[in-house]
Amino acid sequence: MLSKEEVKKVAALARLDLSEEEIDVLTPQLANILGFIDQLKEVDTTNTEPTAQVTGLSDVFRADELENWDKSEVAAALSQSPAGLEGNQIKVKKVLEQD
């Protein structure tokens, strides 16, 4: 059975801030869904390869060449960063704290 502590740990891994109330609702819901999914264990999959994609393509290569993207589209994409830009760089909060 999934515990509230496990749910909190998963939320931390997912970088997802959840309220106590949300955790109370999610815990039994996730347990219920995982219980339903448990029926997959009854399928014999010895000698069955996993399927990750279905097109039959494998190892699609392309030349590792720099392609210039439309400048106005690049500017439009960069302009949406919430903390703004410095030159062509997106600003982020400090990663390392000073002692």
Partner: peptide, 15 residues
Amino acid sequence: DAYYLQAQKVRTKIK
């Protein structure tokens, strides 16, 4: 392995 890999294998059977 218990969830994701097993699901991908059952996916093969369905396909």
